[in-house]
Amino acid sequence: MESVFAVVVGILYATGLYLMVRRSIVKTIFGLALLGNGANLLIFTVGRLSAGRPPYVPIGALEPLPPVADPLPQALILTAIVIGFGVQAFALVLIKQVFQTVGSDDVDEMTTTDRIADDGGQG
């Protein structure tokens, strides 16, 4: 099972990186989203894939009965998904605004802040 997940993580990373080297910022943001999902799946995989029970402590016991799934990777992934949700929502609003002010989604058009002799980024 691990090897399947490893391949899926690899594909997500490769696709994400490929999209990120495109000139279109829309694709870049999609690439970032895929990269985030790849990282989440990576945590899930390295946190051991086990078909255990949920780690609840039965009434009267002090610790859950093994075998239980490790809850921490899933808690981490949940948090990371929530954060990724917020960041991607912001990124989408941002690229919409960028498109409206610059009039293009091509990163090669966005070089006014890198030039040395211009209006100093006031434009």
């Binding site: 960028v98 002010t101 610059v102 070089t111 006014t112 802040t113 980024g121 434009g123």
Partner: peptide, 10 residues
């Protein structure tokens, strides 16, 4: 929301 800010932000 100025142009330079948008470019810097992205």
């Amino acid at each position: 929301g100025k142009r330079a800010q948008m470019e810097g932000a992205i």
